[in-house]
Amino acid sequence: MIGLQWEIIIIAILAAITCAILGVFLVLRKMSMTSDAISHAILPGIAIGFLITGTINSPLLIILAALMGLLTVAMTEAVTSTRLVKEDAATGLVFPALFSIGVILISKYASNIHIDTDSVLLGEIAFAPFDRLVIREIDIGPKSFWVLGTTILLNLLFVLVFFKELKLSTFDSNLAATFGFMPILLNYMLMGLVSITIVSSFEAVGVILVIALLIAPAATSYLLNDNLKNMITLSVIFGIISALAGYWIARWLDASIAGMMATVSGLIFFLVYLLAPGQGLVASVRRRQRQKLEFAQMTLAMHIYNHSDDSENIEERMKGKLGYHLGWSVSYIEKIVKRSQNSGIITVKDDLISITSKGIGFVEAANMLISSKYHPSFQRLRNEFIIFTGN
């Protein structure tokens, strides 16, 4: 028998894992907000399931919730196919209508049980361990252990069996259809599992945290890696970190556990968004600054190259005259000339700038780059100048 504290942590980790597995595909398919729509639209399915069975513990609730998620996707696509409104507007029309029906059903026929809208949206993971699964008077742990564990197995099985089909249909649905992979069917299967994932998690952690765990870890991994398998792995890791850090910070601050987990997942994304080595904001700013300097070097090299045989206008190559010819400030000229010297593109002697053999190759490659043609020197130059990498 493990302690209550660790049961909460395990439930949070299980929720993070089950969401992270599918979240990557939602992010790559640009369907992040669809998860939000489904998370609200499943409410009528839960309410109808309760009205039929009289209990909130029946598997029928999960089945009807999954069907309601598929209905949300189908209705959104049907409205979008009319071309009268765009997909985002169709989503905004469909899920509030379905969610409102669920709220009405619950408030009218299920107001005396704990399946209220606050429970669905916010959840309370601290109470999840008290909902035990007892078989023949034997307590085998919190019900969430088994529900989330089963959902993880379903999601893993789906991804493992259909990984090739999911990968192809995610990046090129037309090609997937050509190969006979039925991308539409795969999409509905994915949305059905997303619905099951949401409904299996909402009572323990709430819809808000489920959405955060579906999207934030996947979006974070997307900034760090472009390999699908690695993205899924990183997404699971970030989800687990969010769950663990969120729990301990919430306990330290005496705050909402689910809310803090969602906050931590957002903070992790924000940090990676800022600091990711390839696609982070800081790296992007530095890359743009470097590109600006390299384009200035290109301009200088072309200017010197074009006047290298012009003995009558030798002042075109004089360092002190560049400000007049190129419109640069003195300090900027010093910066670009020094940078170009360090790169071996030019040499300076008695204020006269000359282009080197490396500089000639640089100019020739630059001309090919401008004309959108490939040049063999690109491979060599791209190690030193990012303007030849296409980034």
Rank of each mutant, 00 (worst) to 15 (best):
I2Y: 10
W6E: 14
I11K: 10
A16I: 06
L28F: 06
S32N: 08
I46F: 06
L51T: 11
I62L: 12
L71A: 09
E77Y: 08
E87W: 06
E87R: 15
A89G: 01
Y109A: 14
A126K: 15
V134P: 00
W146D: 05
V147Y: 05
G149T: 05
L154M: 12
L156Q: 09
L156V: 13
L157D: 05
L160H: 09
L168C: 05
L168N: 02
L168T: 09
F171Q: 07
D172M: 08
N174H: 13
A176Q: 04
Y188V: 01
M189V: 05
M191R: 10
L193P: 00
V194R: 06
S200T: 12
S201L: 10
L213Y: 04
I215F: 01
A216G: 03
T220V: 02
N225K: 11
N230I: 11
M231D: 00
M231S: 07
I232D: 01
I237L: 07
G239D: 03
L244P: 00
D254I: 10
S256G: 05
S256W: 00
A262Y: 04
G266H: 05
I268P: 00
V272D: 01
G278P: 00
V282W: 04
R286E: 13
K292L: 11
E294L: 07
M302L: 15
Y305W: 13
N306C: 06
D310E: 09
S311W: 14
E315R: 15
E316S: 13
E316M: 15
R317M: 04
L322I: 04
L322A: 07
L322V: 03
H325V: 06
V330Q: 15
K338G: 13
Q341V: 08
D351T: 10
F362A: 09
N367D: 11
H375D: 11
Q379L: 14
I387A: 05
